[in-house]
Design a protein around this nucleic acid. Sequence first.
DNA 1: CCCACGATGACCGTCACG
DNA 2: CGTGACGGTCATCGTGGG
Length: 589
Amino acid sequence: MGDDSGLGSDNIDWNTDDELEIEGFHSSCSTVSNAHTITAGSVEARSFAGPSNTKVFDNFISMGFPAEVVSKVIQEYGEENKDKLLEEILTYTALESSSQQQQQQVEPDPTSSEYAGSSWDDLSDDDAFSDDEMPKSGDDDTLLALVKMGFKEQEALVAIERLGQDASLDDLVDFIGVAQLVKAEDSLLPPEDKPQSSGHSKLKKRSLYEYEVLGKKRPKVIEKRGVCEEDDEAQALNLPNPMVGFGIPTEPSSLVTHRRLPENAIGPPYFYYENVALAPKGVWQTISRFLYDVEPEYVDSKYFCAAARKRGYIHNLPISNRFPLLPLPPRTIHDAFPLLRRWWPSWDPRTNLNCLQTVHGSARLTDRIRKAVESCEHLEEPTDVVKKYVLDQCRKWNLVWVGKNKVAPLEPDEVEMLLGFPRNHTRGGGISRTDRFKSLGNSFQVDTVAYHLSVLKEMYPDGVNLLSLFSGIGGAEVALHRLGIPLKTVVSVEKSEVNRNIVRSWWEQTNQKGNLIDMDDVQQLDSDRLEQLMSIYGGFDLIVGGSPCNNLAGSNRVSRNGLEGSESSLFYDYFRILDLVKAMAPRFR
DNA sequence: CCCACGATGACCGTCACG
DNA sequence: CGTGACGGTCATCGTGGG
């Protein structure tokens, strides 16, 4: 009897309108017997589709899915995760004609390997990495060695930064030792007292490790809430709520117009650094300490455009008399894409898009969603399960409604518009669609950056010399250009060749009068090269950079290593170059 | 009022494969 | 070049207890 269940159920028309019973009728005899018939006497399915599962089961049945598929999937995955269920049901439905392979569930065996080998415990509770896990680069080895010696990672990092990558281990240990001494004495020793060890003598006037040491977390002090007293110490960098930094164009109220910058942060030259706001803990503290203890300005670009983009900015620009690019971009999905309103279901409450990322939803995904919505077409509106599935996917992949029951990812030119770039900025010239998404996903939101940079306009009516590190597709350049700030000389460092081509192409199309010098590696920018450039073109007025976020971003499941990751550690090059330019600036004024 | 706690949701991504 | 598989870290918010 159970054998022909598949055939039997296939012949039943599940979409007859009498299936639309109200849930209150579940207890009725007819419904129950129906369910039994549906499962065609399959013992497992019947036992599974017992009283507690009737609702879930009926839910899917009322969506029009074949009962056999529903019961099979429920049996396999349980009923808790409805998203997974629907996914699987959709997959099965799509592969209807093909043969269904049965996967046997792996039962977790509590007695399998728990007490067999006790050595596993040692690995799990020790945070020290085994050597073969970290075969990376030389400086990582040094860092690892220091950490293994019992030093804090931050201390080790600062030491390496200060003494150079090639410093001997002994020197580094000495350095950290002195730093700890300073900390212990709680003194304010001037940096000249630190050991001028052999090797790299490019030590700066400033005492970085002093910040490092003194900036450490203090013994827990009883904190008074409510009163906003002036703290002499940089406490935990709290994200503002709402995330509007020092103000946004549309909310001029409650804006902070003045701030006190640390002495050695004051420009010129001005600098502007950007990265993801939601980095792993401690990352922004470290970044801030290196960038002269300037407090980050956290801004969500959803206050500038229709898509969210939570970013932290550290800069030494004035913050009064900012002005936005005009016209102000639309700040809701409907205003940005008025043509889509027609297709937008009333049960999709989104008004803002989530962060524009480097990846986008696939065509297959949008097809699955269409099927899911269509399966509920006989209803007033989709069931809660379908709604949740569709909305979750739409939020996850930033999908928009482009037709009846049809969702789609944004097109690259739509992303360009949202980010404030000219249309077709990234188009053509041999750039693939995938690369466009990637380049755009890594970019600035131009209106946000322009708002911050707008204060430069009256300061530099004749234009600026710009040093643009990790330029990407030229967000800073476009922002300054749209602000009407002439670009005299732009030195642009960008690894990706397609991105350099995009900036070069934009540069020529906009008839720039200045010079664009590009290079592909920040390592090329040493003091000699900077000296050469600045002697030819003059000093830099502005140093912009958004260093790679690969190892900081939450989407990264593979290598979210923090600031020491292979890409994100390029932040230290931003600091290195900025510090060089600052030191050289007085001679080129 | 304050705090602890759990639930919820977002996230400039990487990799292997065909 | 498109596609899917691949979790975890945090911030925020609501809630229940003190």
